[in-house]
Design a protein around this nucleic acid. Structure first.
Lengths: 228, 228
DNA sequence: AGAACATTCACCGAAAACCGTGATTTTTTA
DNA sequence: TAAAAAATCACGGTTTTCGGTGAATGTTCT
């Protein structure tokens, strides 16, 4: 407690591990504990815990799962980026979805490993980013490579207006134009205008394509408990 | 090797663990190894490995992940059920989707735990099923309870004919009727007939609702690498 | 204050989707 | 082999979607 001024500068300020899967968290902690070049190891099993930890501490590396129960993982990433801009970030994901890869590249993480990674790969990833290098697992690199073709696809999310988002969500729940108009208390013509904007922005021809593209780009999400 | 006739009867014939996540597999093995009442522990990181193992051996308990790289997990379940009908089955899943719950109940597994389960819960689950009891984690029970309302929803999968399945897949990829007709070398009228059957069977009014319901019931799956 | 954007609305026409009904041929199953 | 189920096609009618074009209000940012 006698180095409160050094904590932000300390290269060995430790590692933060975030994962809601107890076994994985435990397994990674076991690996990291065995690495002498790493200082303190803190763990969090939710975004809330992680946020509480980074308030008081600064970490040189954060290794985090992006599928978390409370926040979306991407939101946590933004918070970490803001609070600890010097911290290196490794993301542990199971998703090989293109939009996840795209967004991780946009945010600029230092490493990506899959959930199926073994001890060696986790060690390698940690050592690489500690040396200032990037570490991307082979699967991630493969998708990254393939993404070159469509690297400049628009960021649909920020392209949409609030109202368009409302209409998109409504369409994606199976509602048709008249129903949406009633729900939003506007005329059918208005909803049709928003529809047309959506089709234009997403470059699709019909509602099904729109919904699929929105899902595959992480803009809307399926509610697994609907439509049973 | 002197008890080839006893292996099928042996109550202590061991445990089979299947998971493609190295850390989880390792973690569970560590837990199970510490349980004296359990005999040999075999591990597999893919469905293929698991199938190879159950060819020669019989296990009293199989603890398996249903998200596997090669087979769909459900297919592996069917194979295990057929080859080792006496084996108790615990499924380790991350999905809380309703259709997964429904299908697990249909198949009749002995236990369900989530990926986020900790050491105690895994121990409890194993001990319960070894005693012949069922073990369902609280989240699973919650969904099960809520499912009572719709327990008798149709098994859409087996309700569909081959041709309807073709058309469903085509619709779910964003194709429109004329295109589907050309692809399948049939008339537009025919495709429309199949469409109507699908709407009737799924009790929906339009293509978007159809696609959503089909996805949420596990009949079709999104290709995460399309529509970027 | 002016520019840019968002939201709202209107109208038209073509295309596609949706609804009902019926019917033939092939395949599967009892 | 007879019955049932699946796959094919037709046709008419209504509704909805899709595409283009234009325009009046706000709202926000510079």
């Amino acid at each position: 407690m006698g180095l409160e001024n050094d904590e932000k500068k300390d290269k060995k300020s430790g590692v933060l591990l975030v994962d809601d899967h107890a076994l994985i968290l435990q397994g990674i902690k076991f690996i990291v504990d065995g690495m002498p070049e790493i200082g303190e190891v803190c763990t969090a099993s939710s975004a809330a815990e992680a946020i509480a930890l980074i308030k008081n501490k600064s970490f040189c590396v954060c290794l985090l799962d992006i599928e978390l129960p409370d926040l979306s993982g991407f939101e946590l990433l933004e918070i970490i980026k803001e609070k600890c801009p010097d911290s290196r970030i490794i993301v542990n994901t199971m998703h090989e979805e293109t939009w996840v890869v795209k967004r991780l590249l946009q945010i600029g993480v230092d490493g990506v490993i899959l959930k199926s990674a073994d001890t060696d790969e986790i060690k390698n990833a940690l050592e690489s980013v500690l040396k200032g290098e990037k570490y991307f697992c082979s699967e991630f690199n493969k998708i990254k490579k393939r993404l070159r073709f469509s690297i400049d696809t628009p960021d649909y999310q920020s392209l949409l207006t609030n109202r368009e988002m409302d209409v998109l969500k409504a369409i994606s729940s199976g509602m048709q134009t008249k129903e949406i108009a009633e729900m939003l208390h506007v005329s059918v013509n208005t909803v049709e205008t928003h529809r047309k904007s959506l089709f234009l922005k997403f470059e699709v021809r019909n509602a099904v394509e729109l919904v699929l593209k929105a899902i595959n780009n992480g803009i809307i999400h399926l509610d697994p408990n609907k439509n049973i």
